[in-house]
């Protein structure tokens, strides 16, 4: 990849990315990570984006992703402006389009946005000159999460070619599941989805699955011999009635318990995008156990976002 130029103006979803583009982000993440973690470094930032403005526009609840982007932007010395819908003009009825146009007019060169509507980031990207990074849009995509999961899995498993990774839980409402599929499959991994049929898209449970993906409703069979598992948050705020019999039953059938972890290959790691419903989709002892890479995901997330900000901020269209 060395010498190949980055040409994308936005990061909206990884479903149309080449493997080379994914690799480039992961390689740059590898270089950004020591800025945050190298014990010999006393200053945990670099001046790369000095004088550039990054706007964080979060129109949906978020702690870790927003803070992660903020830390990433600050580690590159960018100026960060935070906008949330609560307390903003959105509450006065301003449209999404008018809000982002205003943010752009105020000098935002990179717009990081989260929105409850799938496709919101694309809608905005089509209408502004800023670079847009999708930090999660509805059920659609969360590309930096897919990239950080790929990065975290690679540091643990090495080359992902032929590795079998289970994505467990509420697949239907999960933009993380979609972004994980669109990042891990191009890197050669095979995905086994597992979860209640009511929480898997109809087309997928009827066999029309993306390449490299299979669906196994039985959690134990899905996990047997797997190389890693990504447990998904049960998105209680997106549940319609009737999808689940009860949380207890869900936890029993698809919750990631220590017994289920033991079904995987020896030492296989456990990931979760957070925030966790401990005791529902993941047992507390698993979440905080020796196989858990959940804290590592948080640190790696900052480095991935530094890499993405760096590539967009210094690419020709925004520079």
């Amino acid at each position: 990849m060395i010498g190949q130029a980055w040409t994308r103006r936005h990061v909206l979803a990884t479903d149309d990315w080449s493997r080379a583009e994914i690799e480039m982000v992961l390689e740059q993440t590898d270089v950004m990570l020591p800025v945050l973690t190298d014990p010999n470094r006393t200053v945990r930032r670099t001046p790369a984006l000095r004088g550039r403005t990054v706007v964080l526009f979060f129109a949906e609840a978020s702690t870790r992703t927003r803070v992660s982007f903020e830390l990433a932007a600050k580690a590159l010395s960018a100026d960060v402006v935070n906008v949330t819908t609560a307390g903003s003009s959105v509450e006065k009825g301003e449209s999404l389009f008018d809000t982002v146009r205003t943010l752009e007019a105020l000098g935002g060169e990179i717009l990081v946005m989260r929105h409850a509507a799938s496709g919101a980031a694309q809608f905005v990207a089509d209408r502004v000159t800023s670079a847009v990074i999708n930090a999660g849009d509805g059920w659609h995509a969360h590309p930096t999460q897919g990239l950080l999961d790929a990065f975290t899995l690679r540091t643990q498993l090495g080359d992902l070619a032929g590795k079998r990774i289970v994505i467990l839980g509420d697949v239907l409402h999960s933009r993380v599941a979609r972004s994980d599929i669109h990042t891990l499959v191009p890197l050669g991994a095979r995905i086994t989805l597992s979860g209640p049929p009511t929480l898997v898209p109809v087309a997928w449970r009827c066999g029309q699955l993306p390449e490299g993906v299979v669906y196994e409703p039985d959690a134990d069979r899905a996990l047997a011999g797997a190389d890693a598992v990504i447990a998904l948050r049960l998105q209680r705020e997106r549940q319609e009635s009737g999808l689940l019999p009860s949380l207890r039953e869900y936890a029993r059938a698809w919750g990631l318990s220590e017994e289920r972890v033991a079904l995987m290959r020896q030492g296989a790691p456990v990931l979760h995008p957070g925030p966790m419903n401990e005791g529902i989709e993941i047992a507390a002892s698993v979440a905080h156990g020796s196989r858990s890479l959940i804290e590592r995901q948080v640190t790696n997330g900052v480095a991935v976002r530094m890499a993405v900000l760096w590539l967009l901020a210094s690419s020709p269209v925004t520079a």
Binding site: A48, L311, S314
Partner: peptide
């Protein structure tokens, strides 16, 4: 690369390579 003063002039994202300083300076 992350310390250059010409990043807004060169027109492409230069590839950053690793820095290896495994000792206290």
């Amino acid at each position: 690369t992350l310390y250059r003063d010409d990043l807004t002039r060169i027109g492409h994202a230069p590839v950053v390579r690793t820095t290896e300083i495994a000792f206290s300076v």
